[in-house]
Amino acid sequence: MTTRATANRNLSIRLASDAADLEAVQALRWQVFFAEMGAEAVTSAASFLDSDPYDPLCDHLLVTDTDDNGDVQVVGTYRLLRESVAARAGGFYSAGEFDIAALSGGNGELLELGRSCVLPAYRTSATIALLWRGIADYIQRHGIGLMFGCASFPGTDPMAHAPALSWLHHHHLAPAWRRPRVLEGKGVAMDLLERGSYDERRAMFALPPLIKGYLRTGATFGDGAYIDHAFNTVDVCVVMPVEAIADRYAARFSLVG
């Protein structure tokens, strides 16, 4: 994939509408997750596409960049899976990493956010704002009450992220009655360091950008971190009730009437 100078970009957001769109999304995900981040899932290696059985069930947000000749490049994406769809298809992807039973039963439908990625040259506030605008429109259209999903730290050594994981545990755990928990035997506790034994400011700065963005919206997190050897990541479970999204984001993305 090639990218253009920032000044010449013409970005837009929409849902994937056909098989060609989905393949472009899968190619983008392969470039980010496999070529850049070192994922090793063998099912995608030969095709240079990141695909799994959930893809045909989901809606896929995509950010595109259109050049002066009309050529369109997919540069960012989010995978969206609604509760009503997941219930007919064996459940949510995140259920393979976390016990998410506590998330059910609230007002509105659950929405799983997943497979978020953006090409390096497009990791700007403009691209992220477009993705959130697309999510906001989707929330309104489908009556979503709570969003959740997995967010990742690079690598599979949780101790490399001990301060950041501990800080999330100490300050941003979801309420007990709405708290996913990592599946037994598949992860580690997040409170790897005792409170007061690490520099909290540095821990905050060490958080991946996506997790920082979730925190700014008012997100909380599940208990424990999943070690994903196939994707070379340490995953945490993010919980974002729509009614709890920070006021400044609710206004910006039209999340309230």
Rank of each mutant, 00 (worst) to 15 (best):
R4Q: 07
H169A: 15
R178V: 00
D68L: 11
C237I: 01
R202F: 06
E184A: 06
T2R: 14
V188Y: 05
S166G: 07
R9Y: 07
Y78C: 07
P209F: 07
D68V: 02
L215Y: 11
D191I: 00
E194D: 13
L207I: 01
I135T: 01
F253Y: 15
V85N: 06
Q73I: 01
D99R: 01
V242G: 14
S116Y: 02
F48Q: 15
N69F: 02
H170F: 05
C58H: 11
A89V: 02
P180V: 04
V234F: 14
M204D: 15
G213W: 05
E23W: 00
L215M: 09
T233M: 11
K212P: 11
A101Q: 10
T156E: 13
T66F: 08
R82Y: 01
A151Q: 10
E112N: 10
G187T: 00
R79A: 09
A244E: 14
R133Y: 12
I13Y: 14
D65A: 02
P241Q: 05
F98N: 06
F34W: 07
D21C: 08
I144P: 12
A250V: 03
F253C: 06
M147K: 01
M37P: 07
K212G: 08
A45E: 15
C237G: 09
D71N: 09
L146D: 02
M159D: 10
S84D: 12
T124D: 12
Q140F: 10
H161Q: 03
A250W: 04
S152K: 08
